[in-house]
Amino acid sequence: MISIFRRPASSPPPRRLTLDILRYNPAEPERAPTLQAFTIDEAEGMTLFIALNEIRAHQDPSLQFDFVCRAGICGSCAMLVDGRPALACRTLTRDLNSHITLAPLPFFELIGDLSVNTGQWMRGTAERLQTWIHAVDRVSIDEIEAPMAPELAEAIYELDRCIECGCCIAACGTAQMRPDFVGAVGLNKIARFRLDPRDQRSDEDFYELIGDDSGVFGCMSLLGCHDVCPKQLSLQTQIAFLRRKMARLGFD
């Protein structure tokens, strides 16, 4: 029985993949954006990370893209895969047609080809929404920590899992119209700190940050964000909940 397991499965010839990649380098404005086609042979378990690196190593050393963890953890590699925002490193080519189109995420500053500046936008948003624990009381780190209900810690982690990849922004109709919209990523962060009892800000404080059209009232609830979030955060529930809370404050 074991020898059967050990025999390599007879495999059909590999597919030829064609990747149409949107090329543009803002440092060379004289060259207009173009879709450039590359063809490669598919390999078993091939991800877009492997495919793009192969193209860069063997076909075009100037191709720009961003990968860091290549494990779906760090949020660096979001791009439009056949028009849909996704993490390229964990997209398997076998789940795609043999003709694949890759383009950079819209909305963010383009660095070149598939590389966009999500980092700068995320930092700006963090400063604007003050996404850190605001505590008045000083904590002594020699003392036993304050207890927290285990379920609450887990619920906070659920919202803390955002990897700032920018997929939700790329899929968001409001963000395309309003460059100052904080997006699902921003609203989710507010939900995260609001839930955390160590953050002593009140709902009024949060209202100051997101109680307008660049915040929770700009959202049209079309839920593009919810469908593309690679961490499957409960964006729909969080946004709806925040909106109810904030709307109530607005009336008071």
Binding site: W132, I133, A135, V139, I141, D142, E143, E145, A146, P147, M148, A149, P150, A153, E154, I156, Y157, D160, F193, D196, R198, D199
Partner: peptide, 18 residues
């Protein structure tokens, strides 16, 4: 231990004893 407790105060949602 001080580092873990500091991180707790900074919002790290450490799993807790049940």
């Amino acid at each position: 231990p001080k580092a873990v407790r500091e991180l707790a105060a900074w919002g790290v949602p450490w799993n807790r004893v049940q």
